[in-house]
Design a protein around this nucleic acid. Structure first.
Length: 547
RNA sequence: GCGCCUGUAGCUCAGUUGGAGAGAGCAACUGCCUUCUAAGCAGUGGGUCAGGGGUUCGAAUCCCUUCAGGCGCGCCA
């Protein structure tokens, strides 16, 4: 719809002999009585052509070639050109949708380009909390969206299993282990205090008995660390699975050390003269690449920093030759962006290749009161608890009806009390109702084959035409969502589409005495169902047959 | 102190990358189930787009500034 219009506008500009044709912008007019689509192009041409916008608009309108596609073309306001498509055009497009939905719904924007999306990547030192859930839902929806747009998408989870944090996890479990067996052992100051630490300690007792009692931690640390983080990681995987999130690859931080990636990264920087020593530590000269200070990559005590392995990690990503890299981070890591981009650029890669999307914090409330989310203190509500309390689809929709970079207040009481009113059900219900209509046709023995051949001219009520127009907007909305990397646009679109269907359903009977009319309306319902299911699938939300 | 994000209806949030008279859901109130699912429908009320300047044909959107909230500024991850 949009593409065709742009072409028509371009053609008529050419007929007018205008040489410098700008990128034609097309938008939806604020009021539907004005038309289906509008362009402000006359206004932007006004300056270069030294003519008034309305004058240009009139010339442009007069030179439109394909008049049959439009019912009317009007000029309004300061010089907007409003296009109202003809019914014939709408009918032929809806027919295309039904005939070949893949071709209609999909815009091949990616053209097979490879993109890797790294998201969640929570430290395996505790269960996933709600903030991780937001990243998970958003990352999954974005991945699905890009995949639908013709990108080859790889979803990756980066496992921080090498540093101080997993060591602290091991030590926390070790301390609990000793305490459970009645041995005196001081719990680490900064240790993880959640109940899961004790659970892990108990399983170790069950499996290994008192084998490690009164041992030195340093001697058994490998076991405690590996065992503990292994359990945490498998729990995280369970949580993600139950939340409906899948990953293609799991990159381990340890592996980067084991396979020499870290050494190679340092070597690369060294040969570029970007490494120096100061105060007993080794530094990476990141300031020439836009960072505000240089960064330590090997500490005084000989240990690497987290940043060092991250450099290696991103070097490896780039070596894998993705056309684009997307990292989805919690917004609390935003200060880390300049240094990582500096590293990417220092290694000789264009930093535009790496896009870092921030997902803002989730403030968890219960009845208006903030709930603590500190992992260390062990007081936090897990993602699992939330989805058990309010449901997977509702939780996802809570996240996907918001811009990722907006702060979000998630009140458990509100989420629960509203869960039956949640917009997700409104959309799913529209789909379920349509299923129900088709179930009804079966009982009545109505032929639902080849609905694309129905007589669309029978769809002439304002409601029906409005629905058709909305359906035809889907590709335009889809393209916008892809280009801006904003899956939440789909969420809003689906609500709007459902908001047209429900009143229609209420006012008109799809299955009625007129066979041809029934088939035409069934065709419309089928088209709605196709779009609803496509959108919900991209969002990672289920499409129940019945509700 | 510096940097990033946010401020739109009572509440939670959209606002198509600068477009036309500012939207949705929830909450409140009034009606609608013997016919394809009432998780629905029809209707009513609700705004200084945080404040102030600027840029231009045109600003919730861009720039400056003030205020408010959140988050960062480690040889932690």
């Amino acid at each position: 719809m949009k593409k065709e219009l742009i072409k028509i506008i371009e053609d008529s500009l050419k007929t007018l002999g205008i040489e410098a044709i700008p990128t034609i912008e097309v938008e939806v007019p604020p009021n539907e009585s004005l038309g289906d689509l509008a362009t402000p192009v006359a206004m932007s041409l006004s300056r270069t052509l030294k003519k008034s916008p309305r004058e240009i608009a009139e010339e442009l309108v007069n030179s439109v070639g394909d008049k049959a596609a439009f019912e009317k073309i009007g000029i309004a306001g300061p010089g907007f050109i409003n296009f109202t498509f003809s019914k014939e055009y709408l009918y032929s497009e809806i027919k295309n949708l039904l005939r070949d939905k893949g071709k209609f719904l999909r815009e091949d924007i990616g053209k097979g380009r490879r993109v890797q999306i790294e998201f969640v990547s929570a430290n395996p030192t505790g269960p996933l909390h709600l903030g991780h859930g937001r990243g998970a839902a958003t990352g999954e929806a974005l991945s699905n969206l890009l995949e639908a747009a013709g990108y080859k998408v790889e979803r990756e989870y980066y496992i921080n299993n090498a540093g101080k944090q997993v060591k602290l996890l091991g030590l926390s479990v070790f301390a609990r282990y000793q305490q459970l067996l009645g041995a005196e052992y001081p719990f680490p100051e900064e240790g993880y205090r959640g109940g899961y630490i004790e659970e892990i300690a108990s399983t170790i007792i069950k499996e290994k008995g008192e084998k490690y009692i009164k041992a030195e931690f340093d001697e058994v640390s490998d076991f405690f660390i590996d065992h503990s983080y292994g359990i945490m990681l498998s729990r995280i995987k369970e949580d993600l699975k139950d939340f409906g999130i899948t990953f293609d690859t799991w990159q381990s931080e340890r592996e980067l050390y084991g396979e020499g990636d870290v050494k190679r990264a340092i070597y690369d920087l060294k040969t570029k003269g970007l490494i120096y020593e100061k105060d007993g530590a080794i530094w990476f000269k990141s300031t020439p690449f836009g960072d505000d200070k240089d960064r330590v990559i090997i500490k005084k005590d000989g240990e690497y920093t987290y940043f060092t392995s991250d450099i290696a990690y991103h070097r490896k990503k780039i070596e894998r030759k993705y056309d684009e890299l997307i990292n989805m981070w919690g917004a609390d890591h935003h200060g880390y962006i300049p240094r990582l981009k500096a590293a990417v650029e220092a290694l000789g890669y264009p930093k535009e290749k790496l896009k870092i999307l921030l997902v803002q914090m989730v403030t968890l409330l219960r009845g208006g009161e903030p709930v603590q989310m500190s992992k260390r203190a062990g007081e936090f509500v897990t993602l699992r608890e939330v989805i058990e309390e309010v449901g997977v689809d509702t939780t996802k929709f809570m996240f996907l009806t918001r811009r990722p970079d907006s702060h979000l207040e998630f009140d458990l009481e509100v989420a629960k009390s509203q869960s039956s009113e949640n917009p997700v059900f409104y959309v799913q219900y529209a789909n379920a109702r349509i299923n129900s209509i088709f179930a009804h046709t079966k009982e009545k023995g109505i032929n639902t084959d080849r609905l694309c051949d129905a007589d669309f001219r029978l769809l002439s009520t304002p409601e029906e035409l409005r629905i058709i127009r909305k359906l035809l907007m889907y590709p335009m909305m889809f393209e916008g969502a892809v280009n801006s990397l904003e899956p939440h646009r789909i969420t809003f679109y689906l609500q709007e589409l459902s908001g047209l269907f429900h009143p229609y359903y209420n006012k008109y009977r799809v299955v009625n005495d007129n066979v041809e009319m029934t088939r035409a309306r069934l065709a419309l319902c089928e088209a709605i169902r196709i779009v609803l299911q496509d959108g919900l699938t991209i969002l990672g939300v289920s499409t129940p047959e019945k509700m």
